[in-house]
């Protein structure tokens, strides 16, 4: 029992920090760079990805006995795509502004590398409880980093954070709202994270 509990917390910690998909695995970077122009959009993208990740991980884990080993990628794809489409419909119905702002990156969540990484590395070989905590940890880690990146970009590019003005508009640098600016800021965050974690990437 204690071992199971330890395993759950370890998976949560790994997803959150040690195997953070953005900082150390460099997965799902396309939406990270494209959507994180403001903290609000970044948080919405992170929350949406986390929801799809949790559902896919839990269902892959629960259904792993009926997913043939040779067709497991197809199984992940069908589940991830279905949850993404269903989520997209709910987003369009109840959060139309976010649906419009996130645009093409909402349906592209179906092919987000983070989901397949967690399904393959954890969900397919673990029980649903562990898969759930792994997805929650990974989702929070992903959402935190994308929101941090969005907040930094928003402050530098627009002088605001979550729409609240911090810096006068005349002192902003709009370059950071573009993809090259995002790459530079993300590189600094990754370098700092690697310095804190120490050692080499496995």
């Amino acid at each position: 029992m204690k071992e199971k509990k330890d395993n759950i917390f370890r998976r949560f910690y790994y997803g959150l920090w040690k195997e953070n998909p953005i900082l150390f695995l460099c997965l799902g970077l396309c939406p990270v760079l494209a959507v994180s122009t403001t903290a609000e959009y970044a948080l919405a993208m992170g929350a949406f990805t986390t929801a799809v990740l949790i559902l896919t991980n839990v269902f892959v884990s629960a259904l792993k006995k009926i997913i043939p080993n040779e067709q497991r990628l197809l199984g992940y794809l069908i589940l991830a795509a279905s949850f993404t489409v269903a989520g997209q419909l709910f987003l369009k119905a109840y959060f139309p502004d976010f649906s419009e702002a996130l645009g093409i990156f909402v349906p592209l969540t179906a092919v987000n590398g983070v989901i397949y990484d967690r399904a393959e590395r954890c969900a397919y070989v673990s029980n649903p409880g562990i898969a759930l905590f792994d997805a929650i940890g990974t989702g929070i880690g992903y959402t935190f980093i994308i929101t941090l990146l969005g907040a930094i970009r928003e402050i530098i590019a627009f002088g605001t954070i979550f729409g609240i003005r911090l810096i006068p508009a005349d002192y902003t640098i709009p370059f950071t709202a573009l993809a090259p600016g995002a790459c530079i800021i993300l590189a600094f965050i990754m370098a700092l994270a690697n310095k804190i974690r120490g050692g080499h990437r496995s």
């Binding site: 009926i66 279905s82 489409v85 419909l89």
Partner: peptide, 23 residues
Amino acid sequence: KNLWFLIIPIFCIALITGSFFYT
């Protein structure tokens, strides 16, 4: 055994159809 795999697409179709009509 592979026929059980069909449960997943059927579940997914039901999920998407349900979401579509609900929203």
